[in-house]
Write a protein that binds this DNA or RNA. Sequence first.
DNA 1: GCGCTGTAATACCCGGGAGGTATCACCGAG
DNA 2: CTCGGTGATACCTCCCGGGTATTACAGCGC
Lengths: 285, 285
Amino acid sequence: MATLETRELRYFVAVAEELHFGRAAERLGMAQPPLSRAIQQLERRLGVDLLERNRRGVTLTGAGEVLLQEGRAALDATAAAARRARRAGGADGPRERLVLAAKAAGSHELLQKLLDAHAAEPGAAEVEVLLCGLCEQEAMLRDGRADVALMYTPFNSLVGFDSEELSTEGQIAILPAGHPLAARPSLSLADVSDVPGLPLARWPGRDGRYPPGPGPEITDQLQLAQLVALGRTVAVYPEYGRSWLWAEHAAVPLTDAPSVVTHIAWPPHSRSRALAGLIRTAVRL
Amino acid sequence: MATLETRELRYFVAVAEELHFGRAAERLGMAQPPLSRAIQQLERRLGVDLLERNRRGVTLTGAGEVLLQEGRAALDATAAAARRARRAGGADGPRERLVLAAKAAGSHELLQKLLDAHAAEPGAAEVEVLLCGLCEQEAMLRDGRADVALMYTPFNSLVGFDSEELSTEGQIAILPAGHPLAARPSLSLADVSDVPGLPLARWPGRDGRYPPGPGPEITDQLQLAQLVALGRTVAVYPEYGRSWLWAEHAAVPLTDAPSVVTHIAWPPHSRSRALAGLIRTAVRL
DNA sequence: GCGCTGTAATACCCGGGAGGTATCACCGAG
DNA sequence: CTCGGTGATACCTCCCGGGTATTACAGCGC
């Protein structure tokens, strides 16, 4: 059985992502020839062509696509094993430590309630909060930087994790304060998706790409706040966005936007007592 | 960053499972001293004690428990990457191949319908059927021996996989043909759980252990069939068990047994067109 | 007390292979 | 036809993974 070392996977993923041996070697901190040789050996061992070497760089074969997908998952799992083992041993006392990943732009209120409730439990594990960008919670759970995360459907995908539903809320339209639509008691998606002179802001999808459209491409909450305040865009945002609105902003409930559901999610094979305690506290909120 | 090679994980898992360096080394096909050294290096690199060496063998520390869990998952993911890549490259033509894992004791009828319907689709992938024992589908999906599986809740756990529900059915009591209870139109769990002289058969749980009780420990369907036919036990079994009953058996519907739901399940990160086609066919059944 | 047994750790050696440098072979652009 | 940029090859070095022999130590029988 060909037993695929971590090093080989790392090398292959680098080449498959760069589609260029030289750059991949640089990224890996090594010279190009040994990298070429390692990939050739890997292909021989698997008995499969992974890369198509043509003039001007390389492309992935079907098997290469598969190995890229699966290899990334395997590397994540390996990194997770290392990180979680190290963390479990760091303070090997009775008090375990948990890392909770949460979107920085998420609901502060919910997070506060959860942490307070958990801290009040007797013998509760210490919880470190790791705030991250838009959709990084999934990667953090997968590669072990976090043990548990707050995720928001439909923005995050819960695929591959265990989860419990915590709360559901509607969405609002965030408009410049003086805009005519801001006076309306409620709006529909159709109302805000085609406002003359006020294009709808575009968020990156799960793959990091932006949907097409005339509106500005948003990367973080502060940028969005500025653009709305400047009267350049209108945004669809979960209810919890009300907590950071400025005086220059107006929020109007949307009647037909999909609900945003907050979940607490964790890797499915977790067996930790500390994690179980945190989840129990969360679902009781 | 300590980057945990596959080899190290393999070694550690072997030692953690055997709790004995000598036996682990034998299982790995190597000598004991290099294994000891490798584990020591691993502990130094992670900066964490994984094993407690006391007189008469070793025991796992907390960090060791974590690394065993996570390490197994990582090794499975790595093996899956190798297997799936190799399979994807084997016949790199337009026809992809899929491996479907199904419990040998499962519903033959459903499997037949699924395979027939799928084969009728134009351009459908070739499907290899891999029949396995009681609860092996999960391991097969995890380590890449299979791409997709038929699973039965509550017997199998869907945790960590994507899945779609295919069908739901009740459970029956399987009794010796001549038994008084066999004449009843229906039974409850209480009726069959305490029949004098006819103890309830015990199935292994997800962890491979048997619940306590007086009945025989069942390992496969044939053994169960024999024991019931001999008048030694009564069993609770899904409806689809009717297809293999003997003349010596009688089946009576159970009114209050949990329903058995058949799912089609697959690894969450799969992106294969062939797999998507099979799933679409399955949910249309 | 003294071996005896079974455990993991240490000492030391050897060979394979991972990685480096220099160079080649190839192809498209100008 | 050269030149720049690509990946592949040739060849060397040395580290480290693995082997054997041995030690250290704890329990057990007598």
